[in-house]
């Protein structure tokens, strides 16, 4: 189990291989379907993105509402492939990586390798457990999207696995997949 601080350095990335278990600490942005659509519209209109995307990590999550005394409600990953059409342009703008679950398209795999980015996968349906590693959540943009709004999380030892590494390896390359 590797403990890593965000943002990741080039050296960190060189050391990570698909399948490695890691614990991430630092800032992570949340965004899923509707927020990606809006970011795509920003890019098309040449408008600035709602947060500094340089080396940022986006977590595909739409949490349940936080109850009293908690930073966040249940907060596990959603299926990443729905965000595939938006990944290349975000990587081109400087995105450092993503956290989600499930396979990515050929194009995303290539783009992750080309941009020396990273894709982590977290355990789906373990939202209660994963929420315990998120100590803070701040609003950033698109609050009208409710659970789909962009927010900034502060993670402490967030458990996940390397899904795609800079060498082009994929955690899902086995069996009948």
């Amino acid at each position: 189990m590797k403990r890593l601080n965000l943002p990741l350095t080039e050296e960190d990335l060189r050391d990570l291989h698909a399948g490695d278990a890691v614990l991430l600490s630092g800032e992570i942005y949340t965004a899923r379907d509707a927020a990606h659509k809006r970011m795509h519209e920003c890019i098309e209109k040449n408008e600035p993105l709602p947060f500094d995307i340089q080396n940022a990590l986006i977590y595909y999550v739409g949490p349940t509402p936080a109850t009293q005394g908690r930073a966040i409600g249940s907060a596990g990953p959603t299926t990443s492939s729905r965000m595939d059409p938006y990944v290349r342009e975000l990587l081109e703008k400087g995105l450092g990586g993503m956290i989600g679950k499930g396979r990515r398209s050929r194009d995303v795999k290539d783009a992750v390798k080309e941009h020396k980015a990273i894709y982590f996968v977290a355990v789906g349906g373990a939202g209660a457990l994963l929420s315990k590693s998120i100590v803070k959540r701040e609003p950033v943009a698109y609050e009208d999207l409710l659970a789909e709004a962009i927010t900034k999380l502060t993670a402490k030892d967030f458990p996940c696995f390397v899904g795609l590494d800079i060498y082009g390896n994929d955690i899902y390359d086995h069996g009948e997949l």
Binding site: S74, V123, L129
Partner: peptide, 28 residues
């Protein structure tokens, strides 16, 4: 081993969901 690791997390998640009253999964 990785499969077992996932099951450890799922069982721990189920325990936390009940004891700390946090939904099992965020997609309710």
């Amino acid at each position: 081993p990785r499969g077992k690791n996932v099951f450890d997390m799922l069982e721990e998640n189920a325990r936390i969901a009940i004891e700390e009253h946090i939904p099992i999964c965020q997609d309710t």
